[in-house]
Design a protein around this nucleic acid. Structure first.
Lengths: 210, 210
DNA sequence: TATAAACAGTAACATTTATCACATTGTGCA
DNA sequence: TGCACAATGTGATAAATGTTACTGTTTATA
């Protein structure tokens, strides 16, 4: 499914020995768009490395809410799975595939061994922790300090960054769910943004102009 | 300031060798209530271990907001300082002393060395990451899914746990600031809670009855 | 003790967000 | 083509939260 060159491209910071270890030990897995990879409360025994596709990470509310936290992209690892894996804890988040995904599963035991053995793995793990922690703190900012209009802009910006394009394939209902508000509110705010010239609205698609 | 026995009591999971290393290498520091230990944007070169007192961790907003995130207690370490320290990054949070604090500062270089050398340190670091990450996720829940009345209850509950008592020395203004709302809103909600028999209001003090 | 400052209560009103009801439009497919 | 359905637009209204203004009380301290 992957050869060393591929892996080296996706995880450029990994040392050659580490790449070799991954090659020989890892389990490959793929998922289709729409699938839920991980559910809240599920036990985690592996660390996940994404090699292809896109995953969205959500925090689930008691009443079925699905609050969007962040994207997982190729070359990234699931911080929650790393933290939990080291102690066989349950997942605090839900992960849903957006674009068909291929990933590598690293068993708990290896994850720990590598921390001691490979400097580049150690640094990757800490980098993952740090960037995710910071991203979650930014999410806290957006809900703690900002009103829905700014939160919506923040949301759209992050989605544009993730897909690397200006045309977002999102319905108003989808956005509303992921921001834990109602469709009408999103429709109205989007309409205002369109009037301000920030974007153009189409069916199932938002074209950013900025 | 500390002898090994003290440290062993505060950090019971640490191995004897690790305690020794801390004894010989660490820098001790103390701060008075009200002091700000760490500011947003400040560079971090040390990992902080709390041995005494209480610290509150905030996320700062652009307009001077101080959103309460979590408490740091004796026996705990600042997760942000650990993550940042390993890469000499700046702090994403602000730390304010609530009860006179004594803490141990571990230089960056040692922090890394110990990860490889002491199993109990490695586990402590990962445990710290995990529990803080989870705590921040709970904070996200409270603001993403809940209205101000429930957020206030969550806030009061956490403060009661931190001080281990039912009498919270907090002004309405203080609470309002830390939840990023206005004093009037907090006064109203507290009054309602008093009417529901959940607490009794006094000047600068809230007596929980549940 | 006199005075200022911090704290708390509350009413009136503005704004934002949530909810309900229903109309309109685009798309896929029988 | 035309039906069914999802997506979107919009007005009316309710509820929550934010703002302003003013009150009285307690505390600190000059």
């Amino acid at each position: 499914m992957h050869d060393s060159d591929d892996l080296k491209k996706i995880f450029p910071s990994f040392s050659d020995e580490l790449i070799n270890e991954i090659e020989t030990n890892a389990i490959h897995q793929s998922y289709k768009a729409g699938e839920v990879i991980m559910r809240t409360g599920q036990y985690i025994n592996n660390t996940l490395l994404v090699t292809k596709g896109q995953i969205k990470i959500y925090r689930e509310g008691e009443n079925g809410g699905e609050f969007f936290m962040y994207y997982l992209q190729p070359g990234q690892a699931c911080a929650v799975s790393m933290i939990c894996a080291t102690q066989s804890q349950t997942s605090q988040i839900m992960a849903k595939v957006v674009v068909d995904v291929e990933l590598i599963m690293i068993p708990l035991s290896l994850m720990e061994k590598w921390m001691m053995k490979f400097r580049s793995w150690y640094e990757f793990v800490l980098f993952t922790y740090r960037t995710r922690f910071e991203e979650v703190l930014e999410v806290v900012d957006s809900i703690a300090f900002r009103a829905m209009d700014e939160r919506l802009e923040f949301y759209l910006k992050r989605h544009a960054e993730a897909c690397g394009c200006k045309d977002l394939k999102l319905s108003h209902q989808e956005i509303a769910t992921e921001l834990n508000t109602s469709r009408e509110v999103i429709s109205r705010l989007l309409k205002k943004m369109e009037q301000r010239g920030l974007l153009r609205l189409h069916r199932n698609q938002i074209e950013l102009l900025t």
